[in-house]
Nucleic acid binder design. Structure first.
Lengths: 229, 229
DNA sequence: GGACAGTGTTACGCAACCGTGACAACTGTG
DNA sequence: CACAGTTGTCACGGTTGCGTAACACTGTCC
Protein backbone atom coordinates (compact mmCIF):
# COMPACT_ATOMS: atom_id res chain seq x y z
CA UNK A 1 0.00 0.00 0.00
CA UNK A 2 2.86 2.38 -0.70
CA UNK A 3 1.29 5.72 -1.38
CA UNK A 4 2.98 7.83 -4.01
CA UNK A 5 3.36 11.42 -2.94
CA UNK A 6 4.51 14.10 -5.35
CA UNK A 7 6.40 16.97 -3.74
CA UNK A 8 6.42 20.16 -5.79
CA UNK A 9 8.93 22.40 -4.09
CA UNK A 10 11.93 24.35 -5.34
CA UNK A 11 13.91 24.52 -2.11
CA UNK A 12 16.13 21.48 -1.83
CA UNK A 13 16.34 21.47 1.95
CA UNK A 14 12.59 21.35 2.49
CA UNK A 15 12.09 18.84 -0.26
CA UNK A 16 14.68 16.47 1.18
CA UNK A 17 13.33 16.78 4.69
CA UNK A 18 9.79 16.04 3.54
CA UNK A 19 10.91 13.18 1.32
CA UNK A 20 12.80 11.63 4.20
CA UNK A 21 9.83 11.89 6.54
CA UNK A 22 7.46 10.44 3.97
CA UNK A 23 9.75 7.54 3.27
CA UNK A 24 10.01 6.84 6.98
CA UNK A 25 6.21 6.79 7.14
CA UNK A 26 6.12 4.06 4.49
CA UNK A 27 5.24 6.28 1.57
CA UNK A 28 6.89 6.75 -1.76
CA UNK A 29 7.94 10.34 -2.48
CA UNK A 30 8.60 11.75 -5.95
CA UNK A 31 9.54 15.33 -6.55
CA UNK A 32 9.48 18.19 -9.00
CA UNK A 33 11.07 21.62 -8.73
CA UNK A 34 8.46 23.58 -10.66
CA UNK A 35 5.05 23.34 -12.30
CA UNK A 36 6.40 22.08 -15.62
CA UNK A 37 8.41 19.28 -13.98
CA UNK A 38 5.35 18.45 -11.88
CA UNK A 39 3.17 17.98 -14.92
CA UNK A 40 5.76 15.76 -16.55
CA UNK A 41 6.03 13.66 -13.42
CA UNK A 42 2.27 13.33 -13.25
CA UNK A 43 2.05 12.37 -16.90
CA UNK A 44 4.43 9.54 -16.06
CA UNK A 45 2.74 8.38 -12.86
CA UNK A 46 -0.36 9.84 -11.25
CA UNK A 47 0.43 10.22 -7.54
CA UNK A 48 -1.93 9.47 -4.66
CA UNK A 49 -1.39 12.92 -3.16
CA UNK A 50 0.40 16.14 -4.10
CA UNK A 51 2.30 18.40 -1.73
CA UNK A 52 2.38 21.76 -3.44
CA UNK A 53 4.48 24.76 -2.53
CA UNK A 54 2.57 28.00 -2.73
CA UNK A 55 5.48 29.98 -4.19
CA UNK A 56 7.05 28.38 -7.21
CA UNK A 57 9.31 29.78 -9.94
CA UNK A 58 7.19 30.42 -13.03
CA UNK A 59 3.64 29.14 -12.63
CA UNK A 60 2.45 29.58 -9.04
CA UNK A 61 1.31 26.69 -6.90
CA UNK A 62 -2.22 28.01 -6.87
CA UNK A 63 -2.35 28.17 -10.66
CA UNK A 64 -0.97 24.63 -10.91
CA UNK A 65 -3.62 23.41 -8.47
CA UNK A 66 -6.34 24.92 -10.66
CA UNK A 67 -4.94 23.24 -13.75
CA UNK A 68 -4.67 19.87 -12.07
CA UNK A 69 -8.30 20.12 -11.01
CA UNK A 70 -9.37 20.71 -14.58
CA UNK A 71 -7.51 17.66 -15.87
CA UNK A 72 -9.55 14.50 -15.65
CA UNK A 73 -6.65 12.32 -14.54
CA UNK A 74 -5.75 14.52 -11.63
CA UNK A 75 -9.09 16.05 -10.75
CA UNK A 76 -9.46 13.81 -7.72
CA UNK A 77 -5.89 13.70 -6.48
CA UNK A 78 -5.85 15.45 -3.11
CA UNK A 79 -3.58 18.46 -2.77
CA UNK A 80 -1.93 19.83 0.36
CA UNK A 81 -0.49 23.34 0.09
CA UNK A 82 2.73 24.37 1.75
CA UNK A 83 2.53 28.04 2.59
CA UNK A 84 4.75 30.48 4.42
CA UNK A 85 3.25 32.38 7.30
CA UNK A 86 1.51 35.52 6.10
CA UNK A 87 0.32 33.89 2.92
CA UNK A 88 -2.58 32.50 4.88
CA UNK A 89 -4.74 35.32 3.62
CA UNK A 90 -5.08 33.44 0.39
CA UNK A 91 -6.70 30.47 2.02
CA UNK A 92 -9.93 31.37 0.33
CA UNK A 93 -8.39 31.24 -3.12
CA UNK A 94 -6.90 27.89 -2.26
CA UNK A 95 -10.16 26.38 -1.14
CA UNK A 96 -11.73 27.70 -4.29
CA UNK A 97 -9.06 25.96 -6.33
CA UNK A 98 -9.91 22.68 -4.62
CA UNK A 99 -7.02 22.40 -2.20
CA UNK A 100 -7.66 19.82 0.52
CA UNK A 101 -5.49 21.11 3.34
CA UNK A 102 -2.75 23.54 4.29
CA UNK A 103 0.48 23.28 6.19
CA UNK A 104 2.12 26.49 7.28
CA UNK A 105 5.92 26.76 7.19
CA UNK A 106 7.82 26.15 9.28
CA UNK A 107 6.13 22.84 10.06
CA UNK A 108 7.21 19.77 11.94
CA UNK A 109 7.46 16.58 9.93
CA UNK A 110 5.16 14.94 12.47
CA UNK A 111 2.45 17.43 11.73
CA UNK A 112 2.93 17.08 7.99
CA UNK A 113 2.71 13.30 8.09
CA UNK A 114 -0.41 13.50 10.25
CA UNK A 115 -2.10 15.77 7.73
CA UNK A 116 -1.02 13.65 4.79
CA UNK A 117 -2.46 10.58 6.45
CA UNK A 118 -5.68 12.39 7.34
CA UNK A 119 -6.18 13.63 3.80
CA UNK A 120 -5.39 10.22 2.33
CA UNK A 121 -7.90 8.64 4.68
CA UNK A 122 -10.55 11.13 3.66
CA UNK A 123 -9.83 10.69 -0.03
CA UNK A 124 -10.34 6.94 0.17
CA UNK A 125 -13.84 7.04 1.50
CA UNK A 126 -12.76 6.42 5.09
CA UNK A 127 -14.08 9.61 6.59
CA UNK A 128 -13.81 8.34 10.13
CA UNK A 129 -17.52 7.66 10.43
CA UNK A 130 -16.98 3.93 10.26
CA UNK A 131 -18.99 3.61 7.08
CA UNK A 132 -17.28 2.22 4.01
CA UNK A 133 -18.79 1.85 0.56
CA UNK A 134 -17.23 -0.08 -2.28
CA UNK A 135 -18.83 -0.97 -5.57
CA UNK A 136 -22.46 -0.89 -4.50
CA UNK A 137 -21.78 -2.59 -1.20
CA UNK A 138 -21.92 -0.55 1.98
CA UNK A 139 -20.89 -1.60 5.47
CA UNK A 140 -21.91 0.47 8.47
CA UNK A 141 -19.67 -0.27 11.42
CA UNK A 142 -21.58 1.50 14.20
CA UNK A 143 -24.90 0.10 13.04
CA UNK A 144 -23.36 -3.30 12.38
CA UNK A 145 -25.15 -3.49 9.06
CA UNK A 146 -24.48 -4.26 5.44
CA UNK A 147 -26.34 -2.80 2.49
CA UNK A 148 -26.35 -3.83 -1.14
CA UNK A 149 -27.71 -0.68 -2.72
CA UNK A 150 -30.69 0.13 -0.54
CA UNK A 151 -31.41 -3.37 0.67
CA UNK A 152 -30.11 -4.70 3.96
CA UNK A 153 -28.04 -7.86 3.69
CA UNK A 154 -28.65 -10.50 6.36
CA UNK A 155 -25.26 -11.61 7.59
CA UNK A 156 -23.82 -13.60 10.49
CA UNK A 157 -21.24 -12.37 12.99
CA UNK A 158 -18.14 -13.98 11.52
CA UNK A 159 -19.11 -13.22 7.96
CA UNK A 160 -19.67 -9.66 9.07
CA UNK A 161 -16.25 -9.35 10.66
CA UNK A 162 -14.65 -10.91 7.61
CA UNK A 163 -16.45 -8.56 5.26
CA UNK A 164 -15.64 -5.58 7.44
CA UNK A 165 -11.97 -6.42 7.37
CA UNK A 166 -12.06 -6.87 3.62
CA UNK A 167 -13.87 -3.63 3.00
CA UNK A 168 -11.48 -1.65 5.16
CA UNK A 169 -8.54 -3.35 3.42
CA UNK A 170 -9.61 -3.79 -0.18
CA UNK A 171 -7.51 -4.49 -3.27
CA UNK A 172 -5.00 -6.50 -1.36
CA UNK A 173 -4.30 -10.19 -0.95
CA UNK A 174 -4.39 -11.76 2.50
CA UNK A 175 -3.24 -15.25 3.34
CA UNK A 176 -5.45 -17.52 5.39
CA UNK A 177 -3.12 -17.04 8.34
CA UNK A 178 -3.41 -13.26 8.07
CA UNK A 179 -7.17 -13.43 7.86
CA UNK A 180 -7.27 -15.66 10.92
CA UNK A 181 -5.16 -13.12 12.75
CA UNK A 182 -7.22 -10.11 11.81
CA UNK A 183 -10.71 -11.53 11.79
CA UNK A 184 -10.56 -14.28 14.38
CA UNK A 185 -8.14 -12.47 16.64
CA UNK A 186 -4.91 -14.41 16.79
CA UNK A 187 -5.35 -15.85 20.25
CA UNK A 188 -7.69 -18.63 19.20
CA UNK A 189 -6.56 -21.62 17.22
CA UNK A 190 -8.68 -22.63 14.29
CA UNK A 191 -7.85 -24.50 11.13
CA UNK A 192 -6.87 -22.50 8.09
CA UNK A 193 -9.46 -24.29 6.03
CA UNK A 194 -12.09 -22.67 8.19
CA UNK A 195 -11.33 -19.48 6.30
CA UNK A 196 -12.31 -21.16 3.06
CA UNK A 197 -15.66 -22.12 4.45
CA UNK A 198 -16.42 -18.62 5.65
CA UNK A 199 -15.29 -17.22 2.33
CA UNK A 200 -17.77 -19.55 0.75
CA UNK A 201 -20.50 -18.46 3.16
CA UNK A 202 -19.71 -14.81 2.52
CA UNK A 203 -19.95 -15.33 -1.22
CA UNK A 204 -23.26 -17.06 -0.77
CA UNK A 205 -24.71 -14.19 1.26
CA UNK A 206 -23.58 -11.74 -1.43
CA UNK A 207 -24.91 -13.94 -4.24
CA UNK A 208 -28.48 -12.55 -4.35
CA UNK A 209 -26.99 -9.23 -5.36
CA UNK A 210 -24.44 -10.71 -7.77
CA UNK A 211 -21.62 -9.34 -5.68
CA UNK A 212 -19.91 -12.65 -4.94
CA UNK A 213 -17.25 -11.75 -7.52
CA UNK A 214 -15.87 -9.15 -5.15
CA UNK A 215 -14.41 -11.92 -3.00
CA UNK A 216 -11.59 -13.24 -5.14
CA UNK A 217 -9.32 -16.23 -4.84
CA UNK A 218 -5.62 -15.80 -5.47
CA UNK A 219 -4.34 -19.26 -5.92
CA UNK A 220 -1.45 -20.12 -3.66
CA UNK A 221 -1.64 -16.78 -1.88
CA UNK A 222 -5.02 -16.22 -0.27
CA UNK A 223 -8.05 -14.02 -0.88
CA UNK A 224 -8.64 -10.50 -2.05
CA UNK A 225 -11.60 -8.16 -1.87
CA UNK A 226 -12.01 -5.95 -4.89
CA UNK A 227 -14.61 -3.80 -6.57
CA UNK A 228 -13.54 -4.86 -10.03
CA UNK A 229 -14.61 -8.31 -11.15
CA UNK B 1 -31.99 14.73 31.77
CA UNK B 2 -29.01 15.78 33.86
CA UNK B 3 -25.93 15.39 31.73
CA UNK B 4 -22.87 14.07 33.49
CA UNK B 5 -19.75 16.02 32.58
CA UNK B 6 -16.33 14.86 33.66
CA UNK B 7 -13.77 17.63 34.14
CA UNK B 8 -10.16 16.48 33.95
CA UNK B 9 -8.12 19.43 35.13
CA UNK B 10 -5.41 19.81 37.74
CA UNK B 11 -5.85 23.50 38.50
CA UNK B 12 -8.40 23.95 41.26
CA UNK B 13 -9.49 27.43 40.27
CA UNK B 14 -10.40 26.49 36.72
CA UNK B 15 -12.03 23.27 37.80
CA UNK B 16 -14.25 25.00 40.34
CA UNK B 17 -15.22 27.73 37.96
CA UNK B 18 -16.18 25.24 35.28
CA UNK B 19 -18.04 23.01 37.73
CA UNK B 20 -20.04 25.96 39.01
CA UNK B 21 -20.97 27.05 35.49
CA UNK B 22 -21.98 23.55 34.49
CA UNK B 23 -24.13 23.10 37.56
CA UNK B 24 -25.84 26.39 36.87
CA UNK B 25 -26.56 25.12 33.35
CA UNK B 26 -28.37 22.12 34.79
CA UNK B 27 -25.57 19.62 34.31
CA UNK B 28 -23.88 17.29 36.69
CA UNK B 29 -20.11 17.86 36.95
CA UNK B 30 -17.67 15.28 38.23
CA UNK B 31 -13.95 15.89 38.31
CA UNK B 32 -10.55 14.28 38.26
CA UNK B 33 -7.14 15.87 38.72
CA UNK B 34 -5.17 13.57 36.43
CA UNK B 35 -5.50 10.78 33.90
CA UNK B 36 -5.53 8.04 36.50
CA UNK B 37 -8.29 9.64 38.53
CA UNK B 38 -10.21 10.23 35.30
CA UNK B 39 -10.09 6.58 34.40
CA UNK B 40 -11.28 5.58 37.83
CA UNK B 41 -14.15 8.03 37.63
CA UNK B 42 -15.12 6.74 34.21
CA UNK B 43 -14.96 3.15 35.40
CA UNK B 44 -17.54 4.13 38.00
CA UNK B 45 -19.84 6.10 35.70
CA UNK B 46 -19.40 6.81 32.03
CA UNK B 47 -20.02 10.54 31.57
CA UNK B 48 -21.95 12.11 28.72
CA UNK B 49 -19.06 14.42 27.89
CA UNK B 50 -15.46 14.94 28.96
CA UNK B 51 -13.69 18.26 29.38
CA UNK B 52 -10.02 17.46 29.09
CA UNK B 53 -7.10 19.70 29.94
CA UNK B 54 -4.30 19.47 27.43
CA UNK B 55 -1.52 19.67 30.01
CA UNK B 56 -1.88 17.20 32.83
CA UNK B 57 0.58 15.88 35.39
CA UNK B 58 1.70 12.44 34.24
CA UNK B 59 -0.21 11.21 31.21
CA UNK B 60 -1.04 14.08 28.87
CA UNK B 61 -4.58 14.96 27.92
CA UNK B 62 -3.92 13.91 24.36
CA UNK B 63 -2.70 10.50 25.39
CA UNK B 64 -5.73 10.05 27.62
CA UNK B 65 -8.02 11.01 24.74
CA UNK B 66 -6.42 8.36 22.57
CA UNK B 67 -6.87 5.75 25.25
CA UNK B 68 -10.50 6.62 25.79
CA UNK B 69 -11.15 6.33 22.07
CA UNK B 70 -9.74 2.85 22.05
CA UNK B 71 -11.98 1.66 24.87
CA UNK B 72 -15.33 0.39 23.74
CA UNK B 73 -17.26 1.99 26.56
CA UNK B 74 -15.88 5.46 26.00
CA UNK B 75 -15.21 5.40 22.29
CA UNK B 76 -18.10 7.68 21.55
CA UNK B 77 -18.10 9.97 24.55
CA UNK B 78 -17.46 13.43 23.11
CA UNK B 79 -14.30 15.18 24.28
CA UNK B 80 -13.65 18.91 24.47
CA UNK B 81 -10.05 19.91 24.93
CA UNK B 82 -8.99 22.83 27.08
CA UNK B 83 -5.77 24.28 25.67
CA UNK B 84 -3.64 27.27 26.47
CA UNK B 85 -2.91 29.70 23.69
CA UNK B 86 0.12 28.61 21.71
CA UNK B 87 -0.69 24.95 22.04
CA UNK B 88 -2.88 25.28 19.01
CA UNK B 89 -0.16 23.85 16.81
CA UNK B 90 -1.13 20.43 18.02
CA UNK B 91 -4.67 20.70 16.78
CA UNK B 92 -3.82 18.11 14.18
CA UNK B 93 -2.89 15.56 16.79
CA UNK B 94 -6.07 16.26 18.63
CA UNK B 95 -8.28 15.76 15.62
CA UNK B 96 -6.45 12.56 14.91
CA UNK B 97 -7.16 11.39 18.44
CA UNK B 98 -10.86 12.03 17.91
CA UNK B 99 -11.34 15.20 19.89
CA UNK B 100 -14.66 16.91 19.15
CA UNK B 101 -13.89 20.53 19.93
CA UNK B 102 -11.40 22.92 21.46
CA UNK B 103 -11.66 25.77 23.89
CA UNK B 104 -8.65 28.01 24.23
CA UNK B 105 -7.78 29.41 27.66
CA UNK B 106 -8.63 31.86 28.95
CA UNK B 107 -12.27 31.23 28.07
CA UNK B 108 -15.52 32.65 29.35
CA UNK B 109 -17.89 30.25 31.05
CA UNK B 110 -20.57 31.36 28.63
CA UNK B 111 -18.47 30.23 25.71
CA UNK B 112 -17.64 26.96 27.39
CA UNK B 113 -21.26 26.15 28.16
CA UNK B 114 -22.27 27.01 24.62
CA UNK B 115 -19.68 24.61 23.23
CA UNK B 116 -20.61 21.87 25.65
CA UNK B 117 -24.25 22.14 24.67
CA UNK B 118 -23.39 22.23 20.97
CA UNK B 119 -21.25 19.12 21.23
CA UNK B 120 -23.85 17.31 23.31
CA UNK B 121 -26.50 18.16 20.76
CA UNK B 122 -24.30 16.90 17.95
CA UNK B 123 -23.45 13.70 19.76
CA UNK B 124 -27.06 12.64 19.98
CA UNK B 125 -29.71 13.17 17.37
CA UNK B 126 -31.31 15.66 19.69
CA UNK B 127 -32.43 19.02 18.37
CA UNK B 128 -32.62 20.41 21.87
CA UNK B 129 -36.37 20.14 22.31
CA UNK B 130 -36.08 16.75 23.95
CA UNK B 131 -38.65 15.34 21.56
CA UNK B 132 -37.58 12.65 19.14
CA UNK B 133 -39.71 10.93 16.55
CA UNK B 134 -38.68 7.84 14.63
CA UNK B 135 -40.83 5.72 12.40
CA UNK B 136 -44.21 6.48 13.94
CA UNK B 137 -42.90 6.39 17.48
CA UNK B 138 -42.50 9.63 19.40
CA UNK B 139 -40.82 10.16 22.75
CA UNK B 140 -41.29 13.40 24.63
CA UNK B 141 -38.50 13.92 27.14
CA UNK B 142 -39.83 16.88 29.09
CA UNK B 143 -43.31 15.35 29.30
CA UNK B 144 -41.90 11.89 29.99
CA UNK B 145 -44.31 10.37 27.51
CA UNK B 146 -44.32 8.03 24.55
CA UNK B 147 -46.70 8.12 21.62
CA UNK B 148 -47.35 5.60 18.88
CA UNK B 149 -49.02 7.81 16.32
CA UNK B 150 -51.62 9.68 18.37
CA UNK B 151 -52.03 7.08 21.10
CA UNK B 152 -50.14 7.27 24.37
CA UNK B 153 -48.05 4.22 25.20
CA UNK B 154 -48.10 3.04 28.81
CA UNK B 155 -44.53 2.34 29.77
CA UNK B 156 -42.51 1.67 32.92
CA UNK B 157 -39.55 3.72 34.19
CA UNK B 158 -36.71 1.48 33.04
CA UNK B 159 -38.34 0.68 29.74
CA UNK B 160 -38.76 4.40 29.26
CA UNK B 161 -35.10 5.16 29.91
CA UNK B 162 -34.07 2.34 27.63
CA UNK B 163 -36.34 3.53 24.86
CA UNK B 164 -35.19 7.11 25.33
CA UNK B 165 -31.58 6.09 24.98
CA UNK B 166 -32.36 4.05 21.91
CA UNK B 167 -34.34 6.80 20.25
CA UNK B 168 -31.62 9.37 20.85
CA UNK B 169 -29.02 6.91 19.53
CA UNK B 170 -30.72 5.01 16.72
CA UNK B 171 -29.19 2.96 13.92
CA UNK B 172 -26.35 1.83 16.05
CA UNK B 173 -25.48 -1.33 17.90
CA UNK B 174 -24.90 -1.25 21.64
CA UNK B 175 -23.53 -4.09 23.68
CA UNK B 176 -25.26 -5.09 26.89
CA UNK B 177 -22.43 -3.49 28.86
CA UNK B 178 -22.88 -0.22 27.03
CA UNK B 179 -26.61 -0.25 27.60
CA UNK B 180 -26.09 -0.94 31.29
CA UNK B 181 -23.74 2.01 31.46
CA UNK B 182 -25.96 4.43 29.63
CA UNK B 183 -29.37 3.37 30.88
CA UNK B 184 -28.66 2.01 34.33
CA UNK B 185 -25.82 4.39 35.11
CA UNK B 186 -22.67 2.38 35.58
CA UNK B 187 -22.25 2.67 39.29
CA UNK B 188 -24.77 -0.08 40.00
CA UNK B 189 -23.96 -3.68 39.35
CA UNK B 190 -26.55 -5.69 37.51
CA UNK B 191 -26.26 -8.77 35.36
CA UNK B 192 -25.93 -8.32 31.64
CA UNK B 193 -28.78 -10.70 31.02
CA UNK B 194 -31.04 -8.21 32.75
CA UNK B 195 -30.79 -6.16 29.59
CA UNK B 196 -32.32 -9.02 27.65
CA UNK B 197 -35.29 -9.08 29.92
CA UNK B 198 -35.93 -5.38 29.61
CA UNK B 199 -35.50 -5.59 25.87
CA UNK B 200 -38.15 -8.25 25.94
CA UNK B 201 -40.42 -6.07 28.06
CA UNK B 202 -39.88 -3.09 25.79
CA UNK B 203 -40.77 -5.16 22.77
CA UNK B 204 -43.91 -6.33 24.49
CA UNK B 205 -45.03 -2.78 25.25
CA UNK B 206 -44.49 -1.84 21.61
CA UNK B 207 -46.25 -4.93 20.34
CA UNK B 208 -49.83 -3.53 20.26
CA UNK B 209 -48.64 -1.05 17.64
CA UNK B 210 -46.53 -3.60 15.74
CA UNK B 211 -43.41 -1.62 16.49
CA UNK B 212 -41.53 -4.38 18.28
CA UNK B 213 -39.41 -4.87 15.15
CA UNK B 214 -37.67 -1.58 15.84
CA UNK B 215 -35.77 -3.21 18.68
CA UNK B 216 -33.39 -5.49 16.87
CA UNK B 217 -31.04 -8.19 18.05
CA UNK B 218 -27.55 -8.32 16.59
CA UNK B 219 -26.30 -11.71 17.53
CA UNK B 220 -22.93 -11.61 19.21
CA UNK B 221 -22.91 -7.80 19.38
CA UNK B 222 -25.90 -6.40 21.21
CA UNK B 223 -29.07 -4.55 20.32
CA UNK B 224 -29.99 -1.85 17.84
CA UNK B 225 -32.92 0.50 17.50
CA UNK B 226 -33.91 1.19 13.94
CA UNK B 227 -36.86 2.43 11.91
CA UNK B 228 -36.17 -0.01 9.10
CA UNK B 229 -37.04 -3.63 9.66
C1' DG C 1 -2.72 -36.60 -19.97
C1' DG C 2 -1.69 -38.00 -15.31
C1' DA C 3 -0.53 -36.79 -10.68
C1' DC C 4 -0.81 -33.59 -7.17
C1' DA C 5 -1.60 -29.56 -4.55
C1' DG C 6 -4.97 -26.16 -3.82
C1' DT C 7 -9.70 -24.87 -3.47
C1' DG C 8 -15.04 -25.33 -3.47
C1' DT C 9 -18.91 -27.48 -1.39
C1' DT C 10 -21.67 -29.97 1.74
C1' DA C 11 -23.13 -32.15 6.02
C1' DC C 12 -22.97 -32.68 10.89
C1' DG C 13 -22.26 -32.31 15.89
C1' DC C 14 -21.50 -28.93 19.26
C1' DA C 15 -21.31 -24.77 21.77
C1' DA C 16 -22.74 -20.16 22.35
C1' DC C 17 -26.30 -17.19 22.40
C1' DC C 18 -30.84 -15.46 23.00
C1' DG C 19 -36.02 -15.38 24.17
C1' DT C 20 -39.17 -16.37 27.52
C1' DG C 21 -41.73 -17.23 31.66
C1' DA C 22 -41.61 -17.56 36.54
C1' DC C 23 -40.36 -15.81 40.92
C1' DA C 24 -38.61 -13.27 44.82
C1' DA C 25 -37.04 -8.82 46.41
C1' DC C 26 -37.86 -4.18 46.61
C1' DT C 27 -40.40 0.31 46.47
C1' DG C 28 -43.79 3.41 47.46
C1' DT C 29 -48.63 4.34 48.76
C1' DG C 30 -52.76 4.46 51.23
C1' DC D 1 -49.15 -3.38 57.09
C1' DA D 2 -51.19 -4.93 52.90
C1' DC D 3 -51.06 -4.37 48.15
C1' DA D 4 -49.80 -3.20 43.44
C1' DG D 5 -46.27 -2.07 40.44
C1' DT D 6 -41.67 -2.67 39.18
C1' DT D 7 -37.23 -4.80 38.96
C1' DG D 8 -33.32 -8.14 38.96
C1' DT D 9 -32.19 -12.91 38.55
C1' DC D 10 -32.51 -17.61 37.28
C1' DA D 11 -33.45 -21.68 34.55
C1' DC D 12 -35.00 -23.88 30.59
C1' DG D 13 -35.55 -24.58 25.68
C1' DG D 14 -34.85 -23.38 21.01
C1' DT D 15 -32.20 -21.46 17.51
C1' DT D 16 -28.26 -19.89 15.27
C1' DG D 17 -23.88 -20.00 13.89
C1' DC D 18 -19.41 -22.25 14.17
C1' DG D 19 -15.49 -25.40 13.27
C1' DT D 20 -14.18 -29.53 11.20
C1' DA D 21 -13.98 -33.45 8.28
C1' DA D 22 -14.88 -35.55 4.07
C1' DC D 23 -15.29 -35.41 -0.65
C1' DA D 24 -15.61 -33.22 -5.34
C1' DC D 25 -13.55 -30.25 -8.34
C1' DT D 26 -10.03 -27.31 -10.74
C1' DG D 27 -5.80 -25.73 -12.28
C1' DT D 28 -0.83 -26.62 -12.89
C1' DC D 29 3.44 -28.77 -13.83
C1' DC D 30 6.11 -32.27 -15.82
Amino acid sequence: MHKRILIVEDEDSIRDMVAFALRKAGMDPMHAADARAAQLAIADTVPDLILLDWMLPGTSGLELARRLRREELTSEVPIIMLTARGEEMDRVNGLEAGVDDYVVKPFSTRELIARVKAVLRRSQGDDGSGVVEIGGLKIDGPAHRVFAGEEAVPIGPTEYRLLYFFMTHPERVYSRAQLLDHVWGGSVYVEERTVDVHIRRLRKTLEPWNLEGMVQTVRGAGYRFSASV
